[in-house]
């Protein structure tokens, strides 16, 4: 493995590792901002995989992976902006951004 040139699989495994780290963070964090950070990590992990596909996969849609990555980045930016705005307004309302406290929909 160490002798093999860096190929598609390397990037895929790296992306998966990052994705799962992000997932663990998203699931185990109790701070809402922490959850958002983890989600960013997951999105980036996916991006890495997308761009790797763009480089290595034989497909008529040239560079489709990179275009995907750009859009994911865009969506992530929008999501981060809105998500953080929500976090701030929740904080203003409840003086907490612990996700366990954000349970207005219950009851």
């Amino acid at each position: 493995m160490a002798l093999a040139p860096i190929g598609l699989q390397h990037f895929l495994v790296l992306g998966t590792i990052l994705f799962c780290i992000g997932m663990y963070g998203a699931l185990s964090r109790s701070n809402a901002v922490g959850v958002l950070l983890s989600i960013e990590l997951m999105l980036n992990a996916v991006n890495v995989i997308m761009v790797a596909f763009a480089k290595f996969i034989d497909t008529p849609q040239e560079l489709a992976g990179q275009v995907f990555a750009i859009f994911i980045m865009t969506v992530a930016a929008a999501e981060a902006a809105v998500g953080l705005a929500i976090v701030i307004s929740v904080y203003r309302l409840r003086h907490s951004i612990q996700v366990d406290d954000i349970d207005l929909l219950k009851n």
């Binding site: 185990s28 964090r29 901002v33 922490g34 953080l84 976090v87 612990q98």
Partner: peptide
């Protein structure tokens, strides 16, 4: 951009920074 935003959000929610952040 995004990280600055994140840091801003963290700063704007004082007293949440050091709370035990794990579930």
């Amino acid at each position: 951009a995004i990280m600055i935003l994140m840091l801003f959000a963290i700063m704007l929610t004082p007293n949440q920074v050091d709370l035990p952040s794990a579930a």
